[in-house]
Design a protein around this nucleic acid. Structure first.
Lengths: 124, 124
DNA sequence: CGGCGCTATATTCAACTGGATATAACGAAA
DNA sequence: TTTCGTTATATCCAGTTGAATATAGCGCCG
């Protein structure tokens, strides 16, 4: 799920994150499957949660990220807007750039992280 | 608290984040106050939580980040190790670099984020 | 016109999280 | 030897989160 091991990038608005790895993945899955429920299934996520994320996305920006349709041939569906696609594209680019900017430091971290398997190390 | 508005950087190990803005701030406060409890107070954080974060930090790396002393003149205290100081320094550098690498994109986000005050916008 | 699949939404419940609180241990200093 | 502030830890409780479940509404298509 994490495209760049060791890095998590979150874009904040005022308050809760407007964009992060989870939402980016969700949008891509919606684009691919044509529905929120399909994306949720593909990601092993509850429909409720997926729907809430879509709602949060649409609330976060001027333009809608995902538009939905109720009823119809396939029961309805969801479609990623051009804006939504651009959103993901730019987010991915941010991941690329941020990752590239800190690869050296990430290696520093990786080098001194303790890897041992966890057992009863911490609490006493 | 967020040094770079719009950006949150988290460094992941295997599982929970090994380093993030909260831990970085905590370390700095420990360095300044000389104790975990002092840092917790300064940050409006419960001692329990602060102590847990310190424990997590020390468990995350080869070398200790914070060393503690029990009892004594001032009841004990905590000290940030040289490694801990380097850890923060490098983390801050990562923030700098990542931030610089995506400022243009962050502006793109800022430009189309919806700012309106929240009321009953979302749920219906 | 009935069924299907999906959006939309409410409700309930379990798990997790973190705060509040209490207490023990500790060791230097008064 | 008493006092003091801190580390270290357990216990309890409230708030939050998200999963599970249920249900309604919708519109095309057979």
């Amino acid at each position: 799920m994490a495209r760049y091991p060791g890095l998590t990038l979150r874009v904040l608005a005022s308050g809760p994150p407007a964009m992060g790895p989870g939402k980016a993945a969700l949008i891509s899955h919606i684009e691919r499957t044509g529905s929120i429920s399909g994306a949720a299934r593909a990601m092993g996520m509850s429909y409720r949660r997926a729907w809430q994320l879509v709602e949060a996305l649409n609330d976060s920006f001027d333009e809608p990220v995902v538009v939905t349709a109720i009823g119809g041939r396939r029961g309805g569906g969801a479609q990623v807007t051009a804006f939504g696609l651009e959103l993901v594209k730019i987010y991915r680019r941010m991941e690329d750039r941020a990752s590239a900017a800190i690869t050296a430091d990430l290696r520093w971290f990786a080098r001194r992280q303790r890897k041992p398997a966890r057992s009863g190390t911490s609490t006493r």
